[in-house]
Amino acid sequence: MIEALISMLLVFMIIAATIALEMTDLLSAVISIGAVGIVVSICFLLVGAPDIASTQLVVEVLTIVILIRATIRHDLVTIDGDREFFGLTVTIALLLVFFIFGLKAFWNLPEFGVPAISEFPDAASNHYLLKGFEETGSRNILAAIIFDYRGVDTFAQLCALFAGIWGAFAIMRVQSKKKKKKEDLYHDKK
């Protein structure tokens, strides 16, 4: 039942993503991207990960707000003309290779509800699931993993976010002090 529902949602996601690519109106494209994100959140909920679902939902709303804020004022630039033969060939070949690889990987997937770690008793994930509660005392195993077992990973993630935010701030900063007079002139005119 859940599998049928999830595959229907997947088809819906592919359709929405295609619409987002093909739409000429930027606002409609942003809204279809939002539809994709919300369906991803529903999929997480169906698979049984409510915390990731809630985070995904909130992030999606935030992304849509920022995208609308950023795109709504800009003009649309369309690219016309024929595509290059070489680029098209490489794209199709890579897509074919990826498709074959994906098909192979899909046949090797374990059944739904039977995780791959059950075949390997020595895997690290098994240790987390069996001993995680005793060792960290945290009932939320995800929090135990990201803050205790894999803390350095989280730290690197935060560093990347830090660099991103401050990089955006550095790029978007107002003119340097020398040119400030011009700005004041503009303010006065207003």
């Binding site: 990960a49 409510p50 915390d51 809630s54 985070t55 909130v58 992030v59 709303v61 935030l62 707000v65 945290s138 009932r139 939320n140 995800l142 929090a143 135990a144 990201i146």
Partner: peptide, 24 residues
């Protein structure tokens, strides 16, 4: 979401994004 991140399905990430969303 923030304070009960270690017992219920939530964490500081979701809580922080909710804080940001309030101000936005």
């Amino acid at each position: 979401l923030t304070l009960y991140g270690h017992t219920t399905p939530a964490s500081g990430f979701s809580g922080g994004i909710v804080f940001a969303c309030v101000f936005i």
